[in-house]
Design a binder for these strands. Structure first.
Lengths: 105, 105
DNA sequence: TTTTTAGCTTACATTTCGTAACTTAGTTTA
DNA sequence: TAAACTAAGTTACGAAATGTAAGCTAAAAA
């Protein structure tokens, strides 16, 4: 009785977006192209996982890695068109959180 | 140089939504109140993790657990108002996936 | 009376994650 | 010119999260 009736595209989208850090990374990159160390400091992720996730997002065509041949070389990460197309998702989460999420310990 | 300038509400929202299975569970519950075993079969999650996540979503006030005192008792899970308010997020992901996600192995 | 179902819980192995130290190459400081 | 520093990672390893499978309790159906 294995009912897999959820759309496979949607499931794949969730698989990418639910993978820890990915949504936060995309959110951060919505601010524009950024370097590895900038992203690392802003989102507070470890380098091991950051490298892993950026590679994943590159493979999924959500992020593009560019080597700028200055001296020394600068490496920039930025959203692709597919990545930018996620802005409405992030906006929706932002709106929901401002409406419904409260933080008191 | 620890820059935590992202909104805490938003970060908490991501923490909940990015926790594996949660978004898929909410998506499934958008179809209406459902029993434990139904959810389990539909989304293909293990009982161990399903129990854990439903508890988490209950604590976050996204899901409500109801014991219906029939014989035998039936236990139903359904979205709260806060949970239903996530529909636009799911719709946005659906739209993005239909536009940008392709599945070919 | 044995078997089945619902709604979990427990034990255990595998996978993923975070922490911290290391690397390579170029750069500024002393 | 040597020592220290920065960027962009990589590696090793322990801790935490996850999946698999089996067990449990109470009631119901065969």
């Amino acid at each position: 009785m294995d009912q897999k009736k959820i759309c496979p595209r949607f499931e794949k989208a969730l698989k990418i977006l639910n993978h820890s850090w990915n949504t936060l990374l995309i959110y951060q990159l919505l601010e524009g192209p950024q370097r590895y160390s900038t992203i690392k400091n802003k989102v507070g992720i470890s380098s091991r996982v950051l490298t892993e996730r950026l590679k994943e997002l590159e493979i999924e065509n959500i992020v593009e890695r560019t080597v700028i041949p200055s001296t020394p070389v600068v490496i920039e990460y930025e959203l692709t068109e597919k990545g930018h197309a996620l802005a409405p998702v992030l906006k929706a989460i932002e709106q929901w959180s401002s409406m419904w999420v409260n933080i008191e310990e």
